[in-house]
Design a protein around this nucleic acid. Structure first.
Lengths: 214, 214
DNA sequence: GATGCTGAAGTTGTATCTATCATTGCGTAT
DNA sequence: ATACGCAATGATAGATACAACTTCAGCATC
Protein backbone atom coordinates (compact mmCIF):
# COMPACT_ATOMS: atom_id res chain seq x y z
CA UNK A 1 0.00 0.00 0.00
CA UNK A 2 1.77 3.10 -1.18
CA UNK A 3 -0.69 5.86 -0.52
CA UNK A 4 -2.39 5.14 2.72
CA UNK A 5 -4.65 8.13 2.59
CA UNK A 6 -5.86 10.79 0.25
CA UNK A 7 -3.35 13.49 1.05
CA UNK A 8 0.07 13.02 -0.50
CA UNK A 9 2.95 12.31 1.83
CA UNK A 10 4.95 15.12 0.30
CA UNK A 11 2.24 17.61 1.17
CA UNK A 12 1.95 16.27 4.67
CA UNK A 13 5.67 16.72 5.20
CA UNK A 14 5.51 20.21 3.75
CA UNK A 15 2.63 21.26 5.95
CA UNK A 16 4.13 19.71 9.04
CA UNK A 17 7.51 21.36 8.72
CA UNK A 18 6.17 24.67 7.50
CA UNK A 19 3.69 25.02 10.31
CA UNK A 20 6.34 24.11 12.83
CA UNK A 21 8.58 26.79 11.43
CA UNK A 22 5.87 29.43 11.29
CA UNK A 23 4.82 28.65 14.83
CA UNK A 24 8.36 28.90 16.07
CA UNK A 25 8.59 25.31 17.23
CA UNK A 26 11.55 24.99 14.92
CA UNK A 27 13.74 27.94 15.73
CA UNK A 28 15.90 29.81 13.28
CA UNK A 29 19.37 28.36 12.96
CA UNK A 30 18.25 24.91 13.96
CA UNK A 31 19.46 21.96 11.91
CA UNK A 32 17.00 19.29 10.93
CA UNK A 33 17.51 16.19 8.82
CA UNK A 34 15.29 14.48 6.31
CA UNK A 35 15.35 11.23 8.26
CA UNK A 36 14.15 12.96 11.37
CA UNK A 37 11.00 14.23 9.71
CA UNK A 38 10.52 10.98 7.81
CA UNK A 39 10.51 8.98 11.04
CA UNK A 40 8.24 11.42 12.74
CA UNK A 41 5.62 11.14 10.03
CA UNK A 42 6.27 7.49 9.18
CA UNK A 43 7.04 8.14 5.57
CA UNK A 44 10.18 7.71 3.54
CA UNK A 45 12.79 10.36 3.03
CA UNK A 46 11.82 11.03 -0.57
CA UNK A 47 8.70 13.13 0.08
CA UNK A 48 10.46 14.87 2.92
CA UNK A 49 13.17 15.91 0.52
CA UNK A 50 10.48 17.30 -1.72
CA UNK A 51 9.09 19.34 1.14
CA UNK A 52 12.53 20.64 2.06
CA UNK A 53 13.08 21.83 -1.49
CA UNK A 54 9.82 23.72 -1.50
CA UNK A 55 10.61 25.31 1.82
CA UNK A 56 14.03 26.32 0.60
CA UNK A 57 12.43 27.95 -2.44
CA UNK A 58 10.26 29.95 -0.07
CA UNK A 59 13.30 31.01 1.89
CA UNK A 60 12.30 29.24 5.08
CA UNK A 61 15.19 26.78 5.07
CA UNK A 62 18.58 26.49 3.53
CA UNK A 63 19.92 23.10 2.47
CA UNK A 64 23.56 22.31 3.03
CA UNK A 65 24.70 19.42 0.85
CA UNK A 66 25.35 16.26 2.82
CA UNK A 67 25.01 18.09 6.08
CA UNK A 68 21.41 18.89 6.67
CA UNK A 69 18.84 21.62 6.47
CA UNK A 70 18.98 24.75 8.52
CA UNK A 71 15.91 26.71 9.43
CA UNK A 72 16.59 30.17 8.07
CA UNK A 73 17.03 32.49 11.01
CA UNK A 74 14.82 35.53 11.01
CA UNK A 75 17.13 38.26 9.85
CA UNK A 76 17.41 41.27 12.09
CA UNK A 77 16.21 43.36 9.19
CA UNK A 78 13.34 41.13 8.21
CA UNK A 79 10.56 42.96 10.02
CA UNK A 80 11.69 46.17 8.42
CA UNK A 81 11.89 44.57 5.00
CA UNK A 82 8.44 43.05 5.23
CA UNK A 83 6.84 46.26 6.38
CA UNK A 84 8.70 48.26 3.78
CA UNK A 85 7.61 45.89 1.02
CA UNK A 86 4.01 45.89 2.17
CA UNK A 87 3.97 49.66 2.15
CA UNK A 88 5.22 49.63 -1.39
CA UNK A 89 2.86 46.93 -2.62
CA UNK A 90 -0.31 48.17 -1.01
CA UNK A 91 0.29 51.77 -1.97
CA UNK A 92 1.07 50.76 -5.52
CA UNK A 93 -2.12 48.72 -5.69
CA UNK A 94 -4.23 51.60 -4.46
CA UNK A 95 -2.66 54.07 -6.84
CA UNK A 96 -3.52 51.74 -9.64
CA UNK A 97 -7.08 51.18 -8.46
CA UNK A 98 -8.08 54.76 -7.80
CA UNK A 99 -7.15 55.68 -11.35
CA UNK A 100 -10.40 53.98 -12.32
CA UNK A 101 -13.74 54.90 -10.84
CA UNK A 102 -15.15 51.48 -11.50
CA UNK A 103 -12.29 49.58 -9.89
CA UNK A 104 -12.40 51.93 -6.93
CA UNK A 105 -16.05 51.21 -6.38
CA UNK A 106 -15.54 47.49 -6.55
CA UNK A 107 -12.69 47.59 -4.06
CA UNK A 108 -14.53 49.87 -1.70
CA UNK A 109 -17.51 47.55 -1.71
CA UNK A 110 -15.35 44.53 -0.94
CA UNK A 111 -13.54 46.33 1.87
CA UNK A 112 -16.75 47.62 3.41
CA UNK A 113 -17.99 44.09 3.65
CA UNK A 114 -14.71 42.96 5.12
CA UNK A 115 -14.70 45.64 7.78
CA UNK A 116 -18.16 44.65 8.85
CA UNK A 117 -16.89 41.09 9.18
CA UNK A 118 -14.03 42.32 11.32
CA UNK A 119 -16.40 44.14 13.61
CA UNK A 120 -18.68 41.13 13.91
CA UNK A 121 -15.86 38.85 14.86
CA UNK A 122 -14.59 41.24 17.48
CA UNK A 123 -18.09 41.41 18.89
CA UNK A 124 -18.10 37.62 18.96
CA UNK A 125 -14.75 37.57 20.73
CA UNK A 126 -13.52 35.47 17.81
CA UNK A 127 -10.00 36.82 17.67
CA UNK A 128 -8.62 34.07 15.46
CA UNK A 129 -11.37 34.76 12.96
CA UNK A 130 -10.65 38.44 13.30
CA UNK A 131 -7.01 37.90 12.43
CA UNK A 132 -8.07 36.15 9.26
CA UNK A 133 -10.37 38.99 8.30
CA UNK A 134 -7.56 41.44 8.94
CA UNK A 135 -5.32 39.48 6.58
CA UNK A 136 -8.11 39.40 4.02
CA UNK A 137 -8.41 43.16 4.15
CA UNK A 138 -4.86 43.62 3.02
CA UNK A 139 -5.07 40.74 0.56
CA UNK A 140 -8.06 42.38 -1.05
CA UNK A 141 -6.04 45.54 -1.58
CA UNK A 142 -3.29 43.61 -3.28
CA UNK A 143 -5.65 41.54 -5.38
CA UNK A 144 -7.21 44.72 -6.67
CA UNK A 145 -3.89 45.56 -8.29
CA UNK A 146 -4.72 42.85 -10.81
CA UNK A 147 -1.06 42.03 -11.17
CA UNK A 148 -0.54 38.30 -10.76
CA UNK A 149 3.16 38.63 -10.01
CA UNK A 150 2.58 41.09 -7.22
CA UNK A 151 -0.23 39.03 -5.76
CA UNK A 152 2.02 36.00 -5.56
CA UNK A 153 4.86 37.94 -4.01
CA UNK A 154 2.55 39.28 -1.35
CA UNK A 155 1.58 35.77 -0.33
CA UNK A 156 5.16 34.93 0.57
CA UNK A 157 5.43 38.13 2.58
CA UNK A 158 2.40 37.16 4.54
CA UNK A 159 3.93 33.83 5.58
CA UNK A 160 6.99 35.61 6.85
CA UNK A 161 4.96 38.05 8.82
CA UNK A 162 2.97 35.24 10.41
CA UNK A 163 6.19 33.64 11.49
CA UNK A 164 7.46 36.80 13.11
CA UNK A 165 4.17 37.61 14.76
CA UNK A 166 3.57 34.13 16.11
CA UNK A 167 3.80 35.24 19.69
CA UNK A 168 1.58 38.26 19.43
CA UNK A 169 -1.94 37.55 20.54
CA UNK A 170 -4.26 40.34 19.54
CA UNK A 171 -6.42 41.74 22.26
CA UNK A 172 -9.89 43.18 21.83
CA UNK A 173 -8.62 46.66 22.41
CA UNK A 174 -5.83 46.50 19.86
CA UNK A 175 -8.15 44.90 17.36
CA UNK A 176 -10.58 47.78 17.66
CA UNK A 177 -7.82 50.26 17.00
CA UNK A 178 -6.87 48.34 13.93
CA UNK A 179 -10.41 48.31 12.62
CA UNK A 180 -10.42 52.06 13.02
CA UNK A 181 -7.26 52.32 10.97
CA UNK A 182 -8.76 50.08 8.32
CA UNK A 183 -11.82 52.28 8.19
CA UNK A 184 -9.64 55.32 7.64
CA UNK A 185 -7.76 53.54 4.86
CA UNK A 186 -11.05 52.65 3.25
CA UNK A 187 -12.22 56.24 3.41
CA UNK A 188 -9.08 57.39 1.67
CA UNK A 189 -9.64 54.90 -1.10
CA UNK A 190 -13.27 55.89 -1.44
CA UNK A 191 -12.10 59.49 -1.79
CA UNK A 192 -9.60 58.23 -4.37
CA UNK A 193 -6.88 60.00 -2.44
CA UNK A 194 -3.82 57.80 -2.89
CA UNK A 195 -1.48 60.19 -1.10
CA UNK A 196 -3.62 60.18 2.01
CA UNK A 197 -3.85 56.42 1.79
CA UNK A 198 -0.09 56.16 1.59
CA UNK A 199 0.38 58.24 4.67
CA UNK A 200 -2.26 56.41 6.69
CA UNK A 201 -0.90 53.05 5.65
CA UNK A 202 2.61 54.02 6.69
CA UNK A 203 1.28 54.86 10.13
CA UNK A 204 -0.73 51.68 10.32
CA UNK A 205 2.19 49.49 9.33
CA UNK A 206 4.51 51.35 11.65
CA UNK A 207 2.46 50.07 14.55
CA UNK A 208 2.59 46.56 13.16
CA UNK A 209 6.32 46.91 12.85
CA UNK A 210 6.58 47.84 16.48
CA UNK A 211 4.68 44.73 17.43
CA UNK A 212 6.93 42.57 15.28
CA UNK A 213 10.20 43.77 16.69
CA UNK A 214 9.32 43.98 20.32
CA UNK B 1 29.44 5.49 -9.71
CA UNK B 2 26.80 7.81 -8.46
CA UNK B 3 28.15 11.25 -9.15
CA UNK B 4 30.02 11.12 -12.38
CA UNK B 5 31.14 14.72 -12.31
CA UNK B 6 31.38 17.68 -10.03
CA UNK B 7 28.11 19.41 -10.87
CA UNK B 8 25.07 17.92 -9.19
CA UNK B 9 22.64 16.08 -11.41
CA UNK B 10 19.77 17.99 -9.89
CA UNK B 11 21.32 21.28 -10.87
CA UNK B 12 22.03 20.05 -14.36
CA UNK B 13 18.41 19.07 -14.79
CA UNK B 14 17.29 22.41 -13.44
CA UNK B 15 19.54 24.41 -15.72
CA UNK B 16 18.68 22.34 -18.73
CA UNK B 17 14.94 22.63 -18.39
CA UNK B 18 14.99 26.24 -17.26
CA UNK B 19 17.14 27.40 -20.11
CA UNK B 20 15.00 25.53 -22.56
CA UNK B 21 11.93 27.25 -21.17
CA UNK B 22 13.51 30.69 -21.14
CA UNK B 23 14.75 30.26 -24.67
CA UNK B 24 11.36 29.16 -25.87
CA UNK B 25 12.45 25.70 -26.96
CA UNK B 26 9.82 24.39 -24.59
CA UNK B 27 6.71 26.31 -25.42
CA UNK B 28 4.04 27.34 -22.98
CA UNK B 29 1.33 24.73 -22.60
CA UNK B 30 3.63 21.89 -23.56
CA UNK B 31 3.60 18.76 -21.46
CA UNK B 32 6.87 17.20 -20.41
CA UNK B 33 7.52 14.17 -18.24
CA UNK B 34 10.22 13.46 -15.71
CA UNK B 35 11.34 10.37 -17.58
CA UNK B 36 11.82 12.32 -20.75
CA UNK B 37 14.29 14.72 -19.18
CA UNK B 38 15.97 11.92 -17.24
CA UNK B 39 16.64 9.97 -20.43
CA UNK B 40 17.86 13.05 -22.22
CA UNK B 41 20.45 13.79 -19.53
CA UNK B 42 21.19 10.17 -18.65
CA UNK B 43 20.26 10.57 -15.04
CA UNK B 44 17.50 9.08 -12.95
CA UNK B 45 14.12 10.61 -12.36
CA UNK B 46 14.94 11.65 -8.82
CA UNK B 47 17.01 14.77 -9.59
CA UNK B 48 14.66 15.66 -12.43
CA UNK B 49 11.81 15.65 -9.99
CA UNK B 50 13.79 17.99 -7.82
CA UNK B 51 14.30 20.34 -10.75
CA UNK B 52 10.61 20.29 -11.63
CA UNK B 53 9.68 21.26 -8.10
CA UNK B 54 12.03 24.22 -8.18
CA UNK B 55 10.68 25.33 -11.52
CA UNK B 56 7.15 25.05 -10.26
CA UNK B 57 8.05 27.22 -7.28
CA UNK B 58 9.32 29.83 -9.72
CA UNK B 59 6.10 29.67 -11.65
CA UNK B 60 7.67 28.32 -14.82
CA UNK B 61 5.87 24.96 -14.71
CA UNK B 62 2.82 23.51 -13.14
CA UNK B 63 2.80 19.89 -11.98
CA UNK B 64 -0.32 17.85 -12.49
CA UNK B 65 -0.35 14.78 -10.24
CA UNK B 66 0.11 11.54 -12.13
CA UNK B 67 -0.25 13.30 -15.42
CA UNK B 68 2.83 15.33 -16.10
CA UNK B 69 4.29 18.79 -15.97
CA UNK B 70 3.04 21.63 -18.09
CA UNK B 71 5.20 24.57 -19.07
CA UNK B 72 3.33 27.59 -17.79
CA UNK B 73 2.08 29.54 -20.77
CA UNK B 74 3.06 33.17 -20.88
CA UNK B 75 -0.05 34.99 -19.79
CA UNK B 76 -1.33 37.66 -22.11
CA UNK B 77 -0.98 40.10 -19.25
CA UNK B 78 2.49 39.05 -18.25
CA UNK B 79 4.45 41.74 -20.10
CA UNK B 80 2.25 44.38 -18.53
CA UNK B 81 2.63 42.82 -15.08
CA UNK B 82 6.39 42.61 -15.31
CA UNK B 83 6.78 46.17 -16.48
CA UNK B 84 4.32 47.41 -13.89
CA UNK B 85 6.17 45.59 -11.12
CA UNK B 86 9.54 46.83 -12.29
CA UNK B 87 8.26 50.39 -12.28
CA UNK B 88 7.10 49.93 -8.74
CA UNK B 89 10.26 48.25 -7.48
CA UNK B 90 12.79 50.51 -9.10
CA UNK B 91 10.97 53.68 -8.17
CA UNK B 92 10.60 52.48 -4.62
CA UNK B 93 14.29 51.68 -4.45
CA UNK B 94 15.28 55.10 -5.68
CA UNK B 95 12.93 56.87 -3.31
CA UNK B 96 14.54 55.00 -0.50
CA UNK B 97 18.08 55.72 -1.67
CA UNK B 98 17.76 59.42 -2.35
CA UNK B 99 16.57 59.98 1.19
CA UNK B 100 20.20 59.53 2.17
CA UNK B 101 23.01 61.54 0.68
CA UNK B 102 25.55 58.86 1.36
CA UNK B 103 23.53 56.06 -0.25
CA UNK B 104 22.80 58.29 -3.22
CA UNK B 105 26.47 58.89 -3.77
CA UNK B 106 27.31 55.23 -3.57
CA UNK B 107 24.60 54.31 -6.06
CA UNK B 108 25.53 57.09 -8.44
CA UNK B 109 29.14 55.97 -8.43
CA UNK B 110 28.17 52.38 -9.18
CA UNK B 111 25.84 53.41 -11.99
CA UNK B 112 28.39 55.72 -13.56
CA UNK B 113 30.81 52.85 -13.78
CA UNK B 114 28.12 50.63 -15.24
CA UNK B 115 27.16 53.11 -17.91
CA UNK B 116 30.76 53.39 -18.98
CA UNK B 117 30.82 49.61 -19.29
CA UNK B 118 27.71 49.75 -21.44
CA UNK B 119 29.31 52.28 -23.75
CA UNK B 120 32.50 50.26 -24.03
CA UNK B 121 30.63 47.14 -24.95
CA UNK B 122 28.60 48.90 -27.59
CA UNK B 123 31.83 50.28 -29.01
CA UNK B 124 33.18 46.72 -29.04
CA UNK B 125 30.07 45.49 -30.83
CA UNK B 126 29.65 43.13 -27.90
CA UNK B 127 25.87 43.13 -27.76
CA UNK B 128 25.53 40.10 -25.53
CA UNK B 129 27.86 41.71 -23.04
CA UNK B 130 25.91 44.91 -23.39
CA UNK B 131 22.68 43.14 -22.52
CA UNK B 132 24.29 41.88 -19.32
CA UNK B 133 25.45 45.35 -18.39
CA UNK B 134 21.95 46.67 -19.04
CA UNK B 135 20.55 44.07 -16.68
CA UNK B 136 23.18 44.98 -14.11
CA UNK B 137 22.16 48.62 -14.26
CA UNK B 138 18.67 47.81 -13.12
CA UNK B 139 19.86 45.20 -10.65
CA UNK B 140 22.09 47.78 -9.06
CA UNK B 141 19.10 50.05 -8.56
CA UNK B 142 17.20 47.29 -6.84
CA UNK B 143 20.12 46.18 -4.72
CA UNK B 144 20.46 49.70 -3.46
CA UNK B 145 17.06 49.35 -1.84
CA UNK B 146 18.80 47.11 0.71
CA UNK B 147 15.64 45.07 1.07
CA UNK B 148 16.44 41.39 0.68
CA UNK B 149 12.84 40.42 -0.07
CA UNK B 150 12.55 42.92 -2.88
CA UNK B 151 15.90 41.93 -4.34
CA UNK B 152 14.85 38.32 -4.52
CA UNK B 153 11.51 39.15 -6.08
CA UNK B 154 13.22 41.19 -8.74
CA UNK B 155 15.34 38.22 -9.77
CA UNK B 156 12.26 36.19 -10.66
CA UNK B 157 10.90 39.10 -12.67
CA UNK B 158 14.09 39.21 -14.63
CA UNK B 159 13.81 35.56 -15.61
CA UNK B 160 10.33 36.14 -16.88
CA UNK B 161 11.36 39.10 -18.90
CA UNK B 162 14.20 37.15 -20.47
CA UNK B 163 11.73 34.50 -21.48
CA UNK B 164 9.44 36.98 -23.14
CA UNK B 165 12.25 38.88 -24.81
CA UNK B 166 14.05 35.80 -26.09
CA UNK B 167 13.52 36.73 -29.72
CA UNK B 168 14.54 40.34 -29.46
CA UNK B 169 18.09 40.93 -30.57
CA UNK B 170 19.27 44.38 -29.62
CA UNK B 171 20.83 46.45 -32.37
CA UNK B 172 23.53 49.04 -31.94
CA UNK B 173 21.10 51.83 -32.53
CA UNK B 174 18.57 50.70 -29.98
CA UNK B 175 21.31 50.06 -27.47
CA UNK B 176 22.57 53.60 -27.78
CA UNK B 177 19.11 54.97 -27.15
CA UNK B 178 18.90 52.85 -24.04
CA UNK B 179 22.21 54.07 -22.75
CA UNK B 180 20.92 57.60 -23.17
CA UNK B 181 17.87 56.75 -21.12
CA UNK B 182 20.05 55.20 -18.44
CA UNK B 183 22.15 58.32 -18.34
CA UNK B 184 19.03 60.42 -17.80
CA UNK B 185 17.90 58.11 -15.01
CA UNK B 186 21.27 58.42 -13.39
CA UNK B 187 21.12 62.21 -13.58
CA UNK B 188 17.77 62.20 -11.84
CA UNK B 189 19.18 60.06 -9.06
CA UNK B 190 22.24 62.27 -8.72
CA UNK B 191 19.89 65.23 -8.40
CA UNK B 192 17.97 63.20 -5.78
CA UNK B 193 14.81 63.87 -7.73
CA UNK B 194 12.71 60.75 -7.29
CA UNK B 195 9.70 62.16 -9.07
CA UNK B 196 11.68 62.87 -12.19
CA UNK B 197 13.23 59.43 -11.96
CA UNK B 198 9.79 57.87 -11.75
CA UNK B 199 8.63 59.64 -14.86
CA UNK B 200 11.75 58.85 -16.86
CA UNK B 201 11.65 55.24 -15.79
CA UNK B 202 8.03 54.92 -16.84
CA UNK B 203 8.97 56.13 -20.31
CA UNK B 204 11.98 53.85 -20.47
CA UNK B 205 10.00 50.79 -19.45
CA UNK B 206 7.19 51.70 -21.78
CA UNK B 207 9.57 51.18 -24.67
CA UNK B 208 10.64 47.86 -23.25
CA UNK B 209 7.02 46.89 -22.94
CA UNK B 210 6.47 47.62 -26.59
CA UNK B 211 9.35 45.36 -27.50
CA UNK B 212 7.99 42.59 -25.32
CA UNK B 213 4.51 42.54 -26.75
CA UNK B 214 5.32 43.02 -30.38
C1' DG C 1 -25.73 5.70 -31.80
C1' DA C 2 -24.76 6.26 -27.00
C1' DT C 3 -23.05 4.38 -22.76
C1' DG C 4 -20.24 1.92 -19.92
C1' DC C 5 -16.61 -1.48 -19.03
C1' DT C 6 -11.92 -3.16 -19.33
C1' DG C 7 -7.27 -3.55 -20.08
C1' DA C 8 -2.99 -1.47 -21.68
C1' DA C 9 0.20 2.26 -21.74
C1' DG C 10 2.15 6.13 -19.62
C1' DT C 11 3.12 8.91 -15.56
C1' DT C 12 3.82 10.08 -10.97
C1' DG C 13 4.43 9.03 -5.82
C1' DT C 14 6.97 6.56 -2.54
C1' DA C 15 10.16 3.25 -0.59
C1' DT C 16 14.53 1.38 -0.48
C1' DC C 17 19.29 0.68 -1.56
C1' DT C 18 24.04 2.15 -2.56
C1' DA C 19 27.77 5.48 -3.06
C1' DT C 20 29.67 9.60 -1.57
C1' DC C 21 30.63 13.35 1.33
C1' DA C 22 31.28 15.92 5.82
C1' DT C 23 32.14 15.78 10.56
C1' DT C 24 33.90 14.05 14.74
C1' DG C 25 36.43 11.73 18.05
C1' DC C 26 40.33 9.04 19.20
C1' DG C 27 44.82 7.24 19.09
C1' DT C 28 49.53 8.21 17.97
C1' DA C 29 53.60 10.67 16.76
C1' DT C 30 56.04 14.80 17.34
C1' DA D 1 50.22 19.80 24.70
C1' DT D 2 49.42 19.83 19.77
C1' DA D 3 48.87 18.26 15.29
C1' DC D 4 47.93 14.62 12.25
C1' DG D 5 45.77 10.51 10.36
C1' DC D 6 42.01 7.56 10.17
C1' DA D 7 38.06 5.04 11.10
C1' DA D 8 33.29 5.53 12.65
C1' DT D 9 29.13 7.98 12.21
C1' DG D 10 25.53 10.35 10.14
C1' DA D 11 23.83 12.78 6.45
C1' DT D 12 22.56 13.53 1.53
C1' DA D 13 22.40 12.47 -3.65
C1' DG D 14 21.08 9.57 -6.89
C1' DA D 15 19.43 5.01 -8.88
C1' DT D 16 16.13 1.67 -9.00
C1' DA D 17 11.84 -0.88 -8.06
C1' DC D 18 7.19 -0.95 -7.69
C1' DA D 19 2.38 0.54 -6.61
C1' DA D 20 -1.34 3.67 -7.73
C1' DC D 21 -3.52 6.69 -10.64
C1' DT D 22 -5.00 8.85 -15.29
C1' DT D 23 -6.18 8.41 -19.77
C1' DC D 24 -7.70 6.34 -23.79
C1' DA D 25 -8.78 3.05 -27.18
C1' DG D 26 -11.49 -0.81 -28.20
C1' DC D 27 -15.29 -3.52 -27.40
C1' DA D 28 -19.58 -5.10 -25.38
C1' DT D 29 -24.06 -3.74 -24.17
C1' DC D 30 -28.20 -1.22 -24.13
Amino acid sequence: MVEKNSVAAGDRAYEDVKSRILEGELAGGELISEGEVADRLNISRTPVREAFLRLQAEGLMKLYPKRGAMITPIARSEARDVVDARNMLETHAVRSVVASEERTERLVAALRENIQLQKDRIADRNLAGYALADADFHSALISASENALIIQFYATLYDRQVRMARSSVPTDVVAEDVVGAHQALLDAIAARDADRFEQLLAEHLKKIHEVLIR
